[in-house]
Design a protein around this nucleic acid. Structure first.
Lengths: 345, 345
DNA sequence: CCCCGTTGAGTTACCCGTAACATTTCGTTA
DNA sequence: TAACGAAATGTTACGGGTAACTCAACGGGG
C-alpha cells in the first residue's frame, strides 16, 4: 500500500517533478508560489502533489540554510502548576497564529534539566527560545549567548535580560502583599512555601514580602516544605507544621493559591475560622479560587496574557520589528475575604 | 563577539575538524564515540569542540537519512483543562527520559485545527505522533496512514486505532456514573456540559450515562453550553439555566469537575444545600476537588499515568518492541459526598 | 527579418553530517 | 626485515530543497 520510494519511503520533490515532467527546481517554484512558471506547469505539478500525497520536508529547507525554522523551544518548570499551563497555552496559541510550533521542555525547576534541554533543543536549530525564569547555569548562558537566536525570558522580569524579558516584578508583588497584610493589622505572619536548590521567583517574592512586613513592624516565620511540589498537600501539611511551631501566627502567606487552598482546608478541618481566627493569603489568583465560597486573598497575574506577550515579542523580533527588551505584565492585589478587613493603621 | 563562520554563523563539524587537524569524518566518529580513533585524536577533537562551543546539528543528522528524529508531535485540545495539562506532563516527562521532545499542538477541539497541525508537524519528520481523541478529518487520517510513523491515539480508547490507542472507555465510565446515581435513588437527572461541533469523549460519556439512567427508569435533561469551554463559569450558568427550565431536577452530572465546581458554587449562592436539596457529580477527579470541604462525587482517571503510558507505547514501538495496540487505563468511581447516600433500590 | 527583452524552465552548487569504501599507519610475527 | 592484519584516518557520495546562474522560447518594434 505504501509507496516505497526512497529509503524512508517518503515522496520527495524530485519524484513529484519527475512525475510532472519538469525539473525539481520548477516544482519547487510552484510549491512556493513565488512565480516564474506558467499556469500549465502549475497545474501539472499540483496534480502530482495531490496524486502522490507529497508533503514538503521542512527539515531540508531549514537545513539548506537561509530559512529560519518555525520551532520555538519553550521551557516550563512543570505543568502541575496551573499557572504555567496557562502561560504555555498563551504561548502556543499565539505562536500557532504565526505558523510556529512549540518544542516543549519541562525543567522541573532545576537548572541542570534546563541546561540539558537547551543543549538538545539548540541542536534542532530552533528559530528562538522562550525560557521560564531568569536564572540559568553558566554553561546554559554560554550556549544561549552563542546561539544567535532570539530569547525571551519570562515570568521573572529581568531588567538586564539575555535578550528579551516579559513578566512581573516578583519582589514588588511580594512587597505589596506584605504591606497589605501589615495594613490589615497583622504582625505575626507565617509563610508556607517550597524550597528549591536554586533561586527562583517564589524566593524573590518572599524577599519582598519579608521586607514589607519587617519594615512595617511585623515578623515572618517561614515554613518551607523541602523537595515538594507547590501544591495542595504540602500547603496542608506545611500549615500544620507552621502552626505547631508558632502558635501565635495571625496570618499566613502562601507561595501560591494551591498551597493556600491546602491551608484553608487545614483550618477548616481544625475548626479555625478564616479570617476570624487566622488570615490566609495566596498568590497567583487561580481561576479555581472561584470554587471557594470565600474569595481568596491573592495576587492576580494574567498568565495567559504573559504567554501571549512572550510569543508576540518573539515573533516581532523574528520579523525584525523593534521590540522593547523588557515588558512588565503587572499584577493586581485581590483583597478577597480570607484576611481580616484592613483598619486604619 | 560572535564568530561569523558560515552563513548562519554556527560552528560546523568541518570547522572543528579543521581546527583539530583531522578530517570531519574523524571528528564525527569522535563525537559519536563509536570508536575507530586514537585517544590522542579524541583529545584533540574534544578540545576544539569545547573551544569553539560546537553544537551538533541534528537537522543534518536526521536529514542525512536513516536516523530517526527525536521529535514526537503531541496534539492536545487545550491546556485550560487541568486534565489535559496533566496528560501532557506525563507524556513530556516520560519522553524526556528517552531523550525525545514533544512538539506541541493545541487543537482547540476542532478537527480542522488538528488537520492543519498534523500537516505542519509531519513536514518536520517527527519520529511519531501522539494525538488526543479518536476522531480525525478524512484528510488527516490519510496523512497519518501515509506517514509511516507510530501513532498513539489517547484519551478515548479505540479498539481499532490507526496504530495504537491508550485511554479509557468513556461510554462505560458515563454508564457507571449513571448507574450509580440511579442506585442512589435519583430519577430526574440533569446534565451540564459544553457542545462541540464534533463527536468527542464527553459526548460518548453522556451517551453511556443516558443509557444507564434511562435503563434504570430515570430521565436525563440536557443543558449544553454552546461554544464555551468546559470550565467553572459555564458550569455555574449552565446550572442556573438548567434549573430554571426544569425545576424538579434532583441531581446534576457535569461534563467535568470544573463545571461541577461551578454548579456547587451556584447552589451555594442560591441556598441550595448539597446533597440534601440537590446532588452534584463531576468527572475527572481533579486534585483541586480536595479544596472542597465536601468530597466531590466524581470519576477518577489517572491522567498522568495515561500520558506516561502513551509515551511508553510510543518508545516501545520505536525500539521495535512488541506493543499491544490497545491499553485501557481504567477509571474508578469516587462516591464522594455531594450526592445522597445510596439506598437499596 | 533581425535584435533584444521578457518569461519560463533547467543546471549547478551548496547546506552538514554520515555510510560506505579507500587508504595510510602501525605493531607483530615469521 | 619483509609481510600482514588491524587500527586509524581520509575520500566520496548522498539526502531534499533552494539560491544563483544559465539557457531556450517567444513576441514585438524598428
Amino acid at each position: 500500500m505504501d509507496k516505497k520510494n526512497n529509503k524512508n519511503n517518503k515522496v520527495s520533490l524530485s519524484q513529484v517533478a519527475e512525475a510532472a515532467g519538469v525539473s525539481k527546481m520548477t516544482a519547487s517554484r510552484v510549491l512556493r508560489g513565488e512565480g516564474g512558471y506558467s499556469e500549465k506547469t502549475r497545474v501539472k505539478v499540483m496534480a502530482q502533489v495531490d496524486q502522490l500525497g507529497y508533503l514538503p520536508n521542512r527539515l531540508a529547507t531549514v537545513f539548506a540554510g537561509d530559512k529560519n525554522s518555525t520551532f520555538i523551544g519553550v521551557s516550563i518548570p512543570d505543568l502541575g502548576n496551573e499557572v504555567f499551563s496557562q502561560v504555555l497555552e498563551g504561548i502556543d496559541r499565539k505562536l500557532g497564529t504565526f505558523g510556529h510550533q512549540s518544542v516543549l521542555g519541562l525543567t522541573q525547576h532545576t537548572l541542570q534539566e534546563e541546561e540539558d534541554w537547551i543543549k538538545t533543543v539548540l541542536s534542532w536549530q530552533p528559530a528562538g527560545l522562550i525560557l521560564t525564569g531568569r536564572y540559568h547555569s553558566a554553561r546554559a548562558a554560554d550556549m544561549l549567548r552563542n546561539a544567535g537566536i532570539p530569547i525571551v525570558e519570562i515570568w521573572d522580569l529581568n531588567s538586564s535580560p539575555l535578550d528579551m524579558s516579559v513578566g512581573i516584578n516578583h519582589f514588588d508583588s511580594g512587597f505589596d502583599m506584605g504591606r497589605y497584610l501589615v495594613g490589615c493589622g497583622y504582625r505575626k505572619i507565617g509563610y508556607v512555601g517550597t524550597s528549591h536548590d536554586t533561586a527562583n521567583a517564589a524566593t524573590t517574592r518572599l524577599d519582598g514580602f519579608c521586607k514589607a512586613v519587617e519594615g512595617g513592624g511585623g515578623e515572618v516565620t517561614r515554613q518551607l516544605c523541602l523537595h515538594d511540589t507547590a501544591t495542595y498537600y504540602p500547603g496542608y501539611y506545611g500549615t500544620e507544621q507552621l502552626l505547631a511551631s508558632a502558635k501565635d501566627i495571625e496570618c499566613i502567606f502562601y507561595q501560591n493559591d494551591s498551597m493556600a487552598f491546602g491551608g484553608l482546608q487545614y483550618c477548616s478541618a481544625k475548626g479555625l475560622e478564616v479570617p476570624r481566627d487566622i488570615g490566609i493569603a495566596g498568590w497567583g489568583d487561580l481561576p479555581v479560587a472561584s470554587v471557594l465560597s470565600k474569595r481568596l486573598t491573592s495576587m492576580h497575574v494574567s498568565h495567559l496574557k504573559l504567554g501571549q506577550a512572550a510569543a508576540e515579542m518573539m515573533m516581532a523580533r523574528l520579523s525584525d520589528e523593534p521590540v522593547p527588551s523588557c515588558r512588565d505584565i503587572g499584577f493586581r492585589l485581590i483583597p478577597g475575604s480570607t484576611v481580616r478587613t484592613a483598619h486604619k493603621s
